[in-house]
Structures are given as C-alpha cells and as structure tokens.
Design a protein around this nucleic acid. Structure first.
Lengths: 219, 219
DNA sequence: GTCTATAGGGTGATAGAC
DNA sequence: GTCTATCACCCTATAGAC
C-alpha cells in the first residue's frame, strides 16, 4: 500500500506521477489562486492528461487542498522549531527572521496565496495547525507559546525586557517578516520602488527587522 | 451628463441604481474574491436583474475594478493625510494606528481581499496610487514620504530617535496594523484564540502597537 | 431603464479504449 | 496507469420585448 501526501483514493498509483502532478499544480495555483486556476493548465504543466488529474486527485478541490497543505507546511514549522529551542530571546528573534526571510525570498508568492485562499475559505486555517503540530511529534504549538511566555516573563523579572504577551510578540514578529512579501505590488507602488529597488529593500530588512524588534523589547 | 464613480458606458443611467449595484457587489466580491464570485449573486443581492449589471458595467471585470478601486480608496488615503500633517512623529504614529484599526474593525475582510486580488493581478497596485494621490489634490505620496524622512532625520539629529528610513518606517507601521486582520483565521489558529478572544486581542493592539513601535524608534 | 430568454463558450468530471 | 473523446453543467454576456 502506497502512502502519499494526499488522501488515498485510486486502486493503484505511481507515487512519482503523484508528486509530478503536485509539483506542477503548485505554481499554477499559487499565482492566480485556486478559483481562477484551470485544471487544463495544470495538466499541461505536468505533461500529462487532464483525466489523470482526476484519477490521482478525485477533484479540483482535493488537489487544491493538497497544494495548500504543502504550502502551509513550508511556511511555519521551521519557525516553530526555532522558537521551541532553548536559545535566548535575542537569538530566537534573529533566527526566525533569517529563516522566514530566506523561505520567502525563494517563494515570494506564498503569503499572498495563503492569505487569499484563507480569506475565501477560513476552514483551511485548520490545516496550518496540522502542519505545525505534525513537525515536532510531541511539541505542540500551545506548549511552545507557553514556554516562550515563561522565557519572556523571566527576562521581564530580570529587568532586561519590557512586559509583552507571547501573542503580541509572535504577531509582531511574523507581521514584520511576512507583510512586505504579501503586499509587494502594493508597497512597491506606495514606496515608489522598482523591482530591483524593492529587492534591495527586502534584503535590507534582514538587519532592519531584528534591530527594530529587539529595540522595541527593551524595558 | 451623469458623472459616476465608474467608467461612463451606457447612454442613460440612474446613478442611484449604479450605486445600488456597486454597494451590493462589494460584500459579494469581498468574501470569496472576484474569481470565485458570480454575477448571479450580485444581481440577487442588488435586487435587480443580471442583465442590468451588464448595462451599467460592461463586464464582470469592469464591475470588479470599480469595487476594487472603492476598497483601495478606503484603506490608505486617511493614513496618507495623517502622515502629511505637521504633527510630531509620536502623534502621527498614534493617529495612524487609531485610524487604521478603526477602519479595519469595520471592514475586517478588506486586507485579505486586497492582497488576494493584487496577488492575482499585480497591475491593480496602480489603482492604489490613483486612490492615494487623488485625495489631496497636490500632495503626492512621494512628497509625503520625503517630508516624513526629513522629520525623522531632524529627530535623529536631536538625538531623540534612532536612524531609520521612511520606507522601513512606513512598512513596519502598516505591517503591525494590517497583518493581524489579513491573516486572522491563520493567526487565530496559531494563537489558539476563539472569535471573542481574537477580538479582544485586536482591541488590545490599539495600545500595544504604538507602545511597541515608539519604543523601537528610541536611539 | 429594466426585464425575460437564450446564446455561446468554457470548465470540471467521467466513460471507455488501450 | 494513461490516454482520447465527450458529457453535463454553469457562467458570462447579449438580443430583443416592454
């Protein structure tokens, strides 16, 4: 029996073909979003027939789910892992920024895609949890957050940090990393930067975000 | 001759009907996005016939453009105006946060919609500029940014602020305000908050964001 | 200006040969 | 397992009566 990333449907499947389809579907779905994407284009990109898509993934919706799950799994688990380590707050911040900006540089359309899809179908947010929880078998997201809060509180007691909830901490950190990618065309227009200029701008944030964020944490 | 918010197409039109259609189209387009929305649903919501939609707006694409332009005009111009005033940096930050969070509380789906639409059609980013530029007849976005940079530089010289570019300043400020709304279902899952809990969380950011942001600006 | 009715085109999905 | 051919539906858009 073949175990694959998506729901097991057909009697016999070639896992390589399954991956080939999934890999081809990703960039097609990611640019215009699921609703505006066509099965025809995915089949063409995968170099197979449209009927084969339905043989491996029963419907467009299920194929879209598989793509989304894969995208979601890419964005967060590394961050959760970094935050769950026993490094100092400062090191964690620097690590998360580096990890997130590296991922996003390679797949810049990911945030807009995820936000767009979730906006249409909020149920999908649950898939994020699945992805985040799965990585570290026993390290739940809630436990990570609780540990982070304890670490923050200890720093507050030591007088080296202002009081802040782990929730605000996480939201602010992710916002600073992800927002410019999610809103690139918009911010590029607002800031009046061309493509190269915005690339430089994004690169400069590797230093800017930790500087900014860590300053905000001072007491 | 009747001047309306959208391109003038038909020989004779009733501006009230036009507005009625536009108002009905807004919530329909905003939830599932343009591609997944159906003209049928808009006609039903507007209480008119589907053919009338094409009489007033030639195509679905043009109706979608009108909705998007209206949404874009709502999000940014007030912020630009606040930033272009002669208030202190601190006051500007507090004003922008208040304005933005008030707008977003009333129309929480706006960011995800705009990000999703722009992700599909980056050309639309230009409509943002139109919306932002139009508000203050002669106050261009570039001029506002230049003035803000001067104001920041003066504070740096006075030793009351760290050095930061106006571009990083604007990006960070907007990110902190908009990101939690854009990613609500996702962040709600990550932070393990129910609807009421997340509403409280968002409300708490009215104080949290200025505190956080202004601390980060200290030298 | 607003309606009913329908054309025209495309999309997801299936049947069945190989 | 993978293909070709095709169905059945839905959606946008238009024609034409009133």
């Amino acid at each position: 029996m073949i175990k694959s990333t998506h729901a097991i449907v057909p009697p016999t499947t070639d896992p390589r073909t399954s991956q080939q389809i999934l890999a081809a579907a990703r960039p097609v779905f990611l640019r215009p979003g699921t609703a505006a994407s066509r099965m025809h284009d995915i089949a063409k990109a995968a170099g197979v027939n449209q009927a084969l898509l339905h043989y491996y993934f029963r419907s467009k919706a299920q194929l879209a789910d598989a793509v989304f799950a894969q995208a979601a799994a890419q964005l967060f688990p590394p961050v959760v892992e970094a935050l769950a380590s026993d490094a100092s707050i400062e090191d964690k911040v620097r690590q998360v920024v580096k990890i997130e900006l590296d991922i996003l540089s390679q797949t810049p359309h990911l945030p807009a895609y995820i936000i767009g899809e979730i906006g249409q179908a909020p149920e999908r947010a649950a898939q994020f949890l699945d992805a985040a929880q799965r990585l570290k078998s026993n390290g739940s997201l809630n436990r990570m957050r609780a540990a982070l809060q304890s670490q923050i509180d200890a720093c507050v007691t030591d007088g080296i940090m202002r009081k802040i909830s782990a929730q605000q901490f996480l939201t602010n950190l992710l916002a600073l990393c992800i927002f410019p990618f999610a809103t690139r065309p918009m911010m590029q227009a607002v800031l009046n930067l061309d493509d190269r200029g915005f690339d430089r701008f994004l690169k400069s944030r590797k230093k800017e975000i930790p500087d900014f964020f860590l300053r905000a944490l001072r007491p």
